[in-house]
Each structure stands twice: as structure tokens, then as C-alpha cells.
């Protein structure tokens, strides 16, 4: 019974990872095409570091800017989806270990999830 559970969890995790990467690639591509149509002819400037503006760093600000028609913010939404993919995988593992009543690994997974959430959300 347990082996079957582990096997099924592995299949679902595999699909979750694939879907996350595919979805984020589509969003990044969409934003990239829009950006290059609009600003493709302008000179590129990435040699000097100035730190990205708030529109491209804050979770809510990125979504707002993307909704407002900023194509680079759409790219950033795609990158956020990409970063969220492994986080979603860990969150799903927590549910799976819960279903298997594996307490030790529920604790382990909560620890990993807490570190990840601190990194992604704790910075803002």
C-alpha cells in the first residue's frame, strides 16, 4: 500500500513540475514577444547595475504592472511562476506525507517550506 502511495506521489510531482515549467515558459515568451515588438529597436543597456525598480521586485507591484500593460512585468510574472514551481512541489509533498501519516517528514517538509516562504515573501 505504501509503495503504491509513494509511486503515485512521484507521478503527480512529475506532472506538477512539468506543468509549472511549461506555463511559466509560455508567460515569459508572451511577455518577451510583446516587449521586443514595443522596445526591440531601442539600445540595450545592462552593463551598469542600478537595481530593478519596484515594479519588477515586489510581488503585488509586478502583478499590477503586468495588468497595466508593462510587457517586462509580464516576463517577471512568468519568472515568478517558475520560482513558485519548486515551492508548489514542496507544498504538495506536505499533503502527500500527511496522507501517508509520516509525521517525521511532515516536520521536515514544513521546515523547508518555511525557509522558502521566508525567502520569497519575507523580502518585501
Amino acid at each position: 500500500m505504501k509503495a503504491w502511495n509513494d509511486f503515485r506521489v512521484e507521478q503527480i510531482i512529475g506532472n506538477l513540475l512539468r506543468a509549472g515549467v511549461l506555463l511559466s515558459a509560455v508567460v515569459v515568451l508572451t511577455g518577451g514577444v510583446g516587449y521586443l515588438i514595443g522596445s526591440g529597436g531601442k539600445p540595450a543597456a545592462h552593463a551598469a547595475f542600478h537595481g530593478e525598480p519596484r515594479n519588477y521586485t515586489g510581488l503585488g507591484a509586478v502583478l499590477g504592472a503586468a495588468a497595466g500593460g508593462d510587457w517586462l512585468a509580464v516576463v517577471q510574472v512568468g519568472l515568478l511562476l517558475l520560482i513558485a514551481t519548486p515551492v508548489a512541489r514542496v507544498a504538495f509533498s506536505l499533503v502527500a506525507f500527511g496522507l501517508e501519516r509520516d509525521r517525521t517528514y511532515m516536520v521536515v517538509t514544513v521546515l523547508v517550506l518555511a525557509i522558502l516562504l521566508y525567502s520569497v515573501i519575507g523580502q518585501h
Binding site: 511577455g31 516587449y35 540595450a44 545592462h46 537595481g51 530593478e52 525598480p53 519588477y56 521586485t57 517586462l72 512585468a73 516576463v75 517577471q76 519568472l79 515568478l80 520560482i83 520569497v120 523580502q123 518585501h124
Partner: peptide, 9 residues
């Protein structure tokens, strides 16, 4: 991302 190191372009 929070420190502005990720340039979408």
C-alpha cells in the same frame, strides 16, 4: 528578486 538582481530583459 527582492534586491532587484533579476532583470526581466
Amino acid at each position: 528578486l527582492g534586491r532587484g538582481y533579476i532583470d526581466p530583459a
